[in-house]
Structures are given as C-alpha cells and as structure tokens.
Write a protein that binds this DNA or RNA. Structure first.
Lengths: 266, 266
DNA sequence: CGGCGAATTGATTTTTTTCAAGCTGGGTGG
DNA sequence: CCACCCAGCTTGAAAAAAATCAATTCGCCG
C-alpha cells in the first residue's frame, strides 16, 4: 500500500536513511509548508509526506504540467514561478480559471480516476513538487487533519473562483482589470496596495490576462493605457507599478478589504 | 468534545434512545445520503451524524438561508427545493454563483470563523438539513473518510464554478443560455437531453437566470425567444421543454459529453 | 542587423445594455 | 365572480461597450 519512490535499488540502509532525512529537511524548508496541503502536518508526520512526494520538477515557461483530458497522476505544489490553470475549447480562445503562485497547491480533482478537466501551463519557468495521486489519496483517507485542511483549502479555491466569476460578470473592462491587478498584487505581497509606487511582478502577457477576465488583448491594451494616462498604474515587461493605489482600488468598483484576507490569501 | 444537541433534559433514557433511532432512520432515508457529505459515512457511523444534525428547516421562497457578512453557524444539505448562492454587491445587480438542488451540500467556508462570503437564498420553498459548524468541524477532524470525501466534493463545486466561468466568459448569449439550460437539465435528470420533447422543472425568473450567466433579463428574453422560434425549446412558468435536444446541445457550442459526468453530477 | 512574438493603435462591426413602454397571467380583495 | 394589481416578461429604439480586423510599432534575442 505504501507508494514506491524512485530510488536506486542497490543503496544500503544507511544511505536510504540519509535520503529520508534529506527529504524531510527539504519538506521542512519548503516555501509551501504551512500554506498548502502540508500545513496541518505535524513535524512527526512530515516524514511520511516527505516519503510520498516526488523530487521537485522544473519546467520551462510555456510547458504543460498536465493537459485537459490526460489521466490524473499527481497533485502539485508550486515552489517557484507562475502556473496558469486554463481550458482551451476546441482550438478557440481559452479561459484562464486561476493562477497558482509559489506556495499554492493545485491539481486535485473531484474524481481522481477521471481525466483532467483543465490544463496547467507554466507561465514562467516553474518548479513544482509533485505528490503522486495514489499516495495522496491514501494519506487523505488516513490522516483526518490533512483531509480536513484540504477540504477548506479547496473551499478557498472555490471562493476564489466565485470572486473571479463576480469580477468577470456584468462589470466593465476598467473594473475587471483593476480587480485582477489588485488580486495578483495581493497574492504576492499578502496585503492590499496602499503606499504610492508599489512595485510587483506580473509575468503575464496581455493575451493571458485577457483570457482571465474575458477581454481581448486589444481592448485590454486600451484599458491599461487609460489607467496609465490617469497616472494610476504602469505595466511593462513583466512588472506592475501601482502609482496610485487608492485610485486603483476605487477603479475596481468593490470594497475589497473585507474579502481580501479570505479570498485571496493562499 | 462530543457536540451537544438540543434535547429536553428531563427525558428518560428510553425516549432518548427512541429519538436517536428516529434521527438515524431519517438520515438513512435522506435523499442526500450517498450524494453529499454523508456519502462515505458507513451505517455504523451514521448514528453519529444523525446526532450532529439539526432537524430539517423549511423556508418559503425568497427567504435568505444565510447572508453575506453573517457569521457561519452551519453547513447545509438541500432536501427539497432550489437554493441560489449569490452575491449582491452594494445594492447593484447580483451574480448567481451556483444553485444547490435537492441532495446538494453547501455552505462550507475556507475559514469557518469568518463571515459568509456569499448569500444563500431560497429560490422555491425549501427544506434544508442544517449541520452545525462546530460539530461538523469535529467530525471532519475525526473521520478521515468524511473529510477526504468532502475535499473531493468541494473540488466538484470548484469544477462547476470553473465550468460556469468558461461558460460566461467570452461566449455569446445563445451559447451561454443553451449551456445553462443543459446544466440545469442534467443536474435534475442525471443525463444529457437526447429524446425529443424532454420536460424538466426550471423554477427561475429571467432575472435570476440572467444574473447567473451575465446577461440582462431583456437580452435573455430575446435570446430565449430566438431559441423558441427555432423550435429548440419552450420555457414558461417554471418549466422547460426541450423540443430539440441535439439543436440545443449544438447551440451550447461545446461538446459536453465528456464533462457532464464529472462537472455537473452532484 | 534581422526576425519575431507581443503590444499598440485605428476604423468598423457586432453584441449587449439601457431605458422606457406595454403586456400577461396568476393572485387578491371586494 | 370580477376588477385590479403587480411582479415578471416582452418588445422597441437608441446608446454604449467590446470584438474584430488589419496594420504598425516595439523590444528582446539570436
């Protein structure tokens, strides 16, 4: 029942133990610790998790981590870089459902036996920590703390999807863009922008951002220009500069303060 | 640690036992059994769940089950009727995030200590089975099967939100409407429409449906008229008549077959 | 110095909203 | 039993928002 891990068979017991310690250390040092599926794992159990997981996997920008229709072999934690969860319907324009940032967990399915419902694409160069499905499911069925935490974690993803839905339904382009920028700012800094001239990474193309909020790249470009001309933001080369935070918050058209902690916090 | 339930203190042990049996029977007979949080509960444990839950609550159409901003006291299973999960942003038009139909579980939060992120409104007269939060959380922390199942159940809700997002982003009114009708058909019958002249309940106002897919009631009315004039559907007084299933599926603009089982199944 | 994907911009068309005015049908009170 | 009431639906005309299409331009990389 215990899932196998890829280890050279001829290593002695000593090295095996060392390997275990290494893995355990890696998990304890992991940026995702305390934030994803690992959060409720007591130090005593972390060894078990460390055994389950595969070594980190690095992928270049643009590569698919998994694609719609594929079987579901593993769940993932992002260690480094940005991942887009997205659908592509029959060669047409896709829709970005969510982004997974460092520390975020993604890839859990309603039914693990079933093909992937969406694709996960590396937006930047990415390092992910894969957790094989079988092992993860056993862990869930055995450790109630992990399972309970995971349920709430997925509820958070659901809440984010709902916020996304509210944002891209029945609101103007300006509002949508402002809201998206604030969300992505928040998810990196863990606070709303308040000081003038805050700077943050934003390694997305206009096309991708457009697919996130349901606008064409052309219209998005115009909307961003307007915001720039009003001295609210500047966006260039993977970086977002929020010149006037209050104006941006106002432009989003919602009071985000109460929701921020709950919905965007990873 | 075991959660208390409201019982007259002066009842003898015999009646108490009878009450327990009643609750247990009610849970075993429940339409939500096998479909919601109760699904993985073995008959042995169902008694425990039966002790946790409050007696069913009936609400007239239009009533709020909980509202955005309120504290989260309980989670719910729908026994009868339709519930809309919705946001209302500052007096403006709201957005319907999802519907909960008989057998559906709703109300779980990312952080249970936190105010509600959305409202739940009874669309029709409704009967729900409330599960007090405290007890539910204890159950989750104790019973890994329930917790693991719940995680996947919430993942299903997330997937449905994603499908909703795809549907209402960057697609025409006709496609959105067709997709919504099919989804609501499926969630009641558990199959896609295929025979001509299938009939199903649809107790929603145009305003509500519009808020679900991001259209005004006016435009929705026009879109429905077009579908009616083409002999595809008829919709009146709470009932949907799918005259030409294939045309409706075609109008939705997506191949729903592979997704249906996973995304819509409650 | 090209080459190329991404961003910008303009002109035009399409889609959807908005606003406002009737319509309808089921429920209520006289 | 009927008149009326009212929420919800329908319809029309005009305005607004966004998509589309088609060039350019920009900036990075080899």
């Amino acid at each position: 029942m215990s899932p196998t891990i890829e280890l050279p068979r001829d290593l002695g017991r000593a090295l095996d133990a060392a390997e275990t310690v290494d893995r355990r250390r890696a998990c304890l040092r992991c940026p995702g610790r305390l934030r994803t599926i690992c959060a409720p794992v007591p130090v005593a159990t972390i060894e078990r998790l460390a055994q389950l997981k595969l070594p980190p996997r690095r992928l270049p920008a643009g590569q698919s981590i998994y694609a719609e229709g594929e079987p579901c072999n593993a769940y993932f934690t992002v260690l480094l870089g940005w991942v887009a969860l997205t659908t592509v319907q029959g060669g047409q324009a896709g829709v970005v459902l969510d982004y997974a940032l460092p520390g975020d967990f993604f890839g859990l399915q309603p039914n693990p036996e079933t093909p992937r419902l969406h694709s996960a694409i590396a937006v930047t160069d990415v390092t992910v920590c894969p957790l094989p499905r079988q092992g993860a499911e056993v862990l869930l069925q055995t450790d109630p703390a992990v399972a309970a935490h995971l349920a709430h974690l997925v509820a958070l993803h659901e809440a984010r999807a709902h916020a996304h839905l509210v944002n891209s339904t029945g609101r103007g382009a300006r509002e949508r863009v402002a809201h998206l920028l604030i969300e992505l700012f928040f998810r990196q800094t863990h606070h709303l922008p308040h000081q003038p001239d805050e700077l943050v990474e934003l390694p997305l193309t206009l096309t991708l951002m457009g697919e996130t909020i349901g606008l064409t790249a052309a219209h998005l470009s115009r909307t961003l220009r307007r915001l720039r001309e009003e001295g609210i933001i500047r966006f260039r080369r993977g970086h977002l500069h929020i010149c006037d935070p209050d104006a941006l918050l106002a432009a989003s058209g919602v009071d985000l303060r109460p929701l921020a902690d709950e919905t965007m916090e990873a």
